[in-house]
Design a protein around this nucleic acid. Sequence first.
DNA 1: TTAGGGTTAG
Length: 638
Amino acid sequence: MLSAASIPVLSAPLPDSIPATSVAKPPPPPPSTNLSLLHLCTHLQEATQVHALMVKTSQTADPYSAGRLAEFYALSDGGSLEHAEKILDSFPHHPPTFVCNTLMRAYSERRNPFLSINLYRQMLVDAVEADRFTFTFTLKACTQLRALAIGMQIHAQVVKHAWESNAHIRNKLIHLYAVSGRIRDARKVFDGSTEPDVVAWNSMLQGYADMDDGENLHNLFDSMPARDVVSWNTMIAYYTEAGKFEEAILMFRLMQESSECGLNRVTLISVLSAVTQLGALGQGQWVHAYIKRHGIELDENLSSALINMYSKCGCIEGAIYTFETTHRRSVDTWNAMIGCFTANGCSLRAIDLFSKMEASLLMPNKITFTCVLNACSHGGLVDRGIRYFEKMSSVYGIEPDVGHYGCMVDLFSRAGLFEKAEEIIQQMPIEPDKVMWKAVVGACRVNKNYELGEKAGLKLIEIAPDDNAGYVLLSNIYAMSNNWNGVYRVRKLMHDRGIKKVPGCSSIELDGLVHEFIAGDAAHARKKEIYEMLDEMAQQLGRAGYEPDTTQVLLDIEEEDVKESSLALHSEKLAVAYGLISTSPGAIIRVVKNLRICGDCHSALKLLSQIYDRNIIVRDANRFHHFNRGSCSCMDYW
DNA sequence: TTAGGGTTAG
């Protein structure tokens, strides 16, 4: 991605070099058999044959014909940007505006807006007349690059040419200002139009959404004379982005009730994102059923969103079904499915699917390898992990990023090969990040390597002093090694620096409603029954020989406040108790927790899955735990 | 002969 610093400044002569706007219209295009042939071209080779004919008859010197040719090369599927650029170069002194516009369009479409701006600059140098299309394309490029300063220069040109009343240009200006954080300037342009159309309204909405200005966003949305699918999508995406997932889903329902407009793929992807983060499988399944009922084809994006939803709700079967019924699979679709197996503790299936992907000759990308290496690390597959890590660059030419090195550190640390892990950290060409240090401390905790754990924990709070996780992990290491002085020091440091723990919260979705619990929660309407169930659970656990892991109370500052809670009232246990009294025997209980599950709850849920013969699936901040018949899919690593 | 706004993924 280009940095703002690398964007060229428009140093070419500005206003006076542009001819007046009231130029006579170009003459009608000459009839041409060659141009009709161009319409029939679907491949580059055919187009170059037509091109050759046109060169032979000197037709390429005609601006109209050159424009059509450039348009084919630059914008059609079988085209070639290089060929289009050659057309432009064939007019070294004064290229036709249409050819320039077409190339600017193509650059923006191919995510190279920098070249659009450069070309505009060249137009100024060559004194090529800019028309209203030139301005829309240039402004689009400025918006893509967030190049506000250049955009403002273009705005001056727009005013000079008296094109501010053109709806397309005006909306581009609103959009540019809105997404660049200049909401007041956007509003000025917006208010300057007598009758802003729905695109102008939507651009303003986007601006308020980007600025996280919920109040103005709502006011504007409510005062819109008409809303379309983009307006609603913007609102749904705003709530999802703001972490207000239930509001996002509510907005989706209101959209359907309003029957103002239909929904589209973007709506579904946005609402799926909210559902996914909420872990609300029932609502996700409703969206999937909607897609099927309305015969909406699963393209690679929608299918990735669905697979991800099933994955994050711990429903592997749903993800597999979606993957298998998707015919247009992209690398993202495969990544979503491999990632689903990885996150849900099916390491061998993740690797097996990766082999199938390789066999399909689709090129894996960085994310594919993150998923595969994670699978190796979670599954303890050290040798395979090393092989894939090597293969990544040697076969696929993908240079490992900090995340991949992190996977390797995790792989070695989990396997207790701490020397190897340290070797990676020392030799990697990138600075280790906090994710990596977290992995090391976590592994040290499991493998009781307190010395390295302390070192990594100290490093973690050094590079991420505002992240509470570092303090919590370091404190855990100290507590496990009975270093209570260390625990005290870390807590004091947290207090002095004003670092707050995030309170633990677990949720469970039943009949389309998400019920949230915090530790010792007494707010639920069925609290009496829930607490009776908790008592029964404790008795059953006692009979099964379970003893609460009291060391966890001391380790527990990540979870809930020690003073306010006891192990038996942890949020995940409350959610499971509610699940047990609210669902029929044998039904799967799915819980989503915002933090990592605590060690005591982990042991208790393993036994509870056996006692009540229930499959209990907990999604915590790190991964999934599928509790079944007394054991957990994470193999006690998390 | 050309144009506008919205989404997801480790």
